[in-house]
């Protein structure tokens, strides 16, 4: 098992005739991805590395039954390419392109959601489900099949972390880069939720960076919803405020979005934050050991306290109900 992509993934490459598109179409094929077609307007009928090229996404979908698309088109056309894929019924769209205007993305993201599709990126390296499928630009030779899920806002820093895990003998289920822009289709919480529900994933590595508050929100989500051990790394501790550090989203503005704040938020909910990517495997091993010890203890205790616990649970949900009704009434009052 893995998340988002697997052996059933049938991939289209938008922008397949470009330098990056053609190179990575071949790399993905080599990894074992089922690349069923490419799209470049005006180049329909030709072939790239034995892959048939179509003029439009809808034409390609009809001919190939593709369910996933990866985008390598230049920034001025990337938003349009995403819309075209969503409109043609593609359910998973991965946009590698860096430099897409944020104002375009603010309109694209709701459109994609409305079509029931998932967008990953833009400005992301894509994802790999080990030994099944690779979509994007992550190098296939650094991953290894295993039980760790990796999610990151970065590209090459993700490779660094994956490589450290692989060297330490800790293989991965799915590795995914969600992108370094301000407006992106899939955030940490979406991926954490998917990893939590994936049986094969036993531990999670989350790589964040300065800017925004996604890591803080992810910390709160983990505390409430993720029972699997999580280890983090946050890039940008040495970054000065007010300067964009490459990624459009990597900027400390008005004193918020600092690495220190993010590390504090993560530590507060018991997540260890590595000082270097090479420390990630060690910390994760430790966290996974602790988690399994806890699970063992629980299993022993469970039989003895089962009755009491279920009692408590009922009381708790009662309280919650009361709270939510209270909230509902106050918000009504305000509206009036």
């Amino acid at each position: 098992m893995a998340i988002f992509i697997n052996k059933k993934t049938k991939l289209l490459v938008q922008g397949i005739t470009g330098r990056d598109g053609s190179f990575h179409a071949e790399q993905m094929k080599k990894y074992g991805t089922d690349v069923v077609g490419g799209v470049t307007p005006g180049k329909g009928g030709t072939k790239v590395a034995g892959i048939p090229v179509f003029n439009t996404v809808s034409e390609a979908v009809k001919a190939t039954k593709a369910n996933t698309s990866v985008i390598y088109v230049p920034p001025p056309f990337a938003a349009d390419a995403i819309l075209e894929a969503a409109d043609a019924g593609i359910k998973l769209i991965v946009c590698v392109t860096e430099g897409v205007p944020a104002n375009d993305m603010m309109k694209v993201v709701p459109f994609v959601k409305e079509r029931g599709a998932r967008l990953i990126g833009p400005n992301c390296p894509g994802l790999i489900s080990t030994d099944m499928s690779k979509v994007g630009i992550l190098p296939g030779n650094i991953v290894k099949k295993g039980s760790v899920g990796v999610v990151s806002r970065s590209g090459t820093l993700t490779y660094e972390a994956i490589w450290a895990l692989t060297l330490a003998g800790m293989g991965q289920t799915t590795c995914i880069g969600i992108g370094g822009d301000q407006v992106i289709g899939t955030n940490f919480i979406d991926v954490l939720d998917a990893f939590q529900n994936d049986k094969a994933t036993k531990g999670i590595v989350m790589i964040g960076e300065i800017g925004g508050s996604d890591e803080e929100m992810a910390a709160r989500f983990i505390q409430k919803n993720v029972t699997k051990p999580v280890v983090a790394f946050i890039a940008g501790q040495a970054a000065p405020p007010g300067k964009r550090m490459g990624h459009a989203g990597a900027i400390i503005s008005g004193g918020s979005g600092t690495a220190a704040d993010k590390i504090k938020a993560l530590n507060k909910v018991g997540i260890a934050v590595a000082g270097s990517p090479t420390e990630i495997p060690g910390l994760l091993k430790e966290a996974m050991k602790k988690a399994s010890a806890k699970a063992d203890k629980k299993a022993v205790k469970k039989s003895a306290t089962q009755v009491k616990k279920s009692d408590k649970k009922v009381k708790k949900t009662d309280k919650k109900d009361k709270k939510s009704t209270k909230k509902a009434t106050t918000s009504k009052a305000k509206k009036r």
Binding site: S154, T156, L157, G180, A239, A250
Partner: peptide, 8 residues
């Protein structure tokens, strides 16, 4: 190469 790795 890469903003995240450059920061790290």
């Amino acid at each position: 190469n890469g903003a995240g790795l450059a920061m790290a």
